[in-house]
Design a protein around this nucleic acid. Sequence first.
RNA 1: GGCGGCGUAGCCAAGCGGUAAGGCAAGGGACUGCAAAUCCCUGAUGCAGCGGUUCGAAUCCGCUCGCCGCCUCCA
Length: 472
Amino acid sequence: MRLYNTLTRSLDPFAPQDGSTVGMYVCGPTVYDHLHIGNVRPVLVFNAFRRYLERFHGWRVVYVQNVTDVDDKLIQRAAETGESVPALARKYTDAYFALLDALGVDRPSASPRATEHIEEMIELISCMVKTGAAYVRDGDVYFRVSRDDEYGCLSGRSLEDQEAGSRVEVSDRKENALDFTLWKAAKPGEPEWPSPWGNGRPGWHTECVVMSRKHLGERLDIHAGGNDLVFPHHENEIAQARATSDKPFFRFWLHNGMLHMGEQEMHKSLGNFRYAYEILEKHAAETVWYFYLSRHYRKPLDFSEEGLEGAAAAVGRVRRLLDDVDAELRGSAAEPGTAGREFLDRLGAFRERYVQAMDDDFNTVGGLGVIQELVNEINRFRAEARDDDRCALRAAAELVRELGYPLGLFQPHVQTGRDSEAELIALLIELRAELRARKEFALGDRIRDRLAEIGIVLKDTAQGTIWKSEAP
RNA sequence: GGCGGCGUAGCCAAGCGGUAAGGCAAGGGACUGCAAAUCCCUGAUGCAGCGGUUCGAAUCCGCUCGCCGCCUCCA
C-alpha cells in the first residue's frame, strides 16, 4: 500500500519495518475539556486505519495514543473552576474513554499519561542541555533551533523563512524566537516536579518523543495527528529526537485535514465548536463513522447536520438489506445452485476493488463506494434469485460486514432474543398468513400492529413474511 | 511576507493522462389488500475561467478568479 508522507511530501510505499508489526503513535487529547467534533476526526480515521491494517494486511498494530494531563490549558481551566489539575484531568480522561466506547472505537494498545513520564522527560532534556542542544534561563529550558541544521524538514520552512515572517513573538529570554520550551519553571500553586533546573513541568513537545520511544521501541513506523500539529509540534518532536539519538525517528508522518464549520475551521477560540457527545445524542455511532469517512482523510471536512442525515440514510439502506437477509435466511442452511454460485464468484471483484482503494492512501471514500456498489449487486440478485439460490445471500452479507468492519460499519447487532421468542413470532406470522388468505385483513393487521408496538416489525416480501426486532 | 490546500451534477463526494465511481435528494415505472422495503429507468457533451503540452487532460504546465489553512495554544 502507499501513503502520503508529510515528511517526503509524496506517496510512499508502506510496510512495517519488521514485516509483521506496525508501531503507530497518534497524538491524543489534552484533557482539559470534552472532545469536540474536530478532535474526533483523527480518532476515527486512524482507528479505522488500524483496523484495516490488521484485518486486510494481517499486520499486528501497536497503537499508542497519549493523554496530555499537564499543560497550560489544564492549569488555566483548573484555576477557573476551582478544581485541582489532577482532578480535572481525571474527569476528562474518563470522559474521553467513555466517548471512545460510545463511538465504538477500539482502546489504544497503550494510553500513556504525560505525568507518568516526568522522570524520562527530565532525562531527555538533561541530555539536550548537556550537548548544547538546549539551554537554561531562569529555571526554564529552551531548545536551541540554531544548532539544528535540519530544523524545518517536516513543515518545509527554513529558519530564514520564518524569521522573515516574524509573526513569532520575540521573548527576551530566548536566543531565537523559534526556540521552544522544554521545561517551564512553576509559578506558585501550579503542578510541579523537581528537576536539575528547579521545580517546574515539562513542555508539551517533549512527552510524545519520550512516550513513543518507550512504548514502541524500534518500531517507529507511523506518527499521526491533525495537520495543525505539523508545525510546531511535530517539527519540534523530530528536532528533539535528532538531538538525542542517532537512530531514525518515525518514517511516516500522516496528517488528517481539519473539520470546518461552514467556511471556517472549527476552533474553540472562535466559539463555533460542538462537543462530540452532542452528536451521539442525535445520531448512531455508525452514522458518525460513515460521515467522517465519507471524505478523504487529508482534505478538510465540512461538518453539517444535512451531511449526517445523508450518512444516516446511506447506512440505513445497507442495514436494511443485511437485516432482511438475516431475517429471511434465519435457520436455513443450504448450498446454493448454479446461479447462486455464479453470483458469489462475482463478489470477489468487489473485495479486490475495495482493497485497491484503501491501499491507495487510505481512500475510504472509494472503499465506501465499492461497498455501495456491492449492495446494489446484492439487491439485484435478491430481487430475481430463485429459492434454492437465496442462501448465497448469507455469504454476500458477510462480505459487506467484512468490508464495513474497518470503517466501523454494518457489524451484527448483539443478539438479545431467545429461541422461544422466535418460535412464537413464527407462529403469529403463520396465523396472520392464514387470516390474510381468508381476506381477514383487519385481524391480520392487528397482529402486525401489535407486534410493531413491542418492537417486532413484519415485512411481506415475495418470499413470504420476514421479521426483525427494532433496536429500541 | 513565507509555506500549503481547495474549487467535479440540486447537495455531499471519488478520480492522480485513456474518454466522469458512489451516496443523499428528485421524478417516472414495477411489485403490494394496505404498510414497509426493494428493483428498473431518468440525470454533468462536461469537472471555476482562459491559454498551453499531448494522439488523448477533471487529471500535467502557465496565468486569472474565488475560498480556506498553517506560520501563536489548537486534532
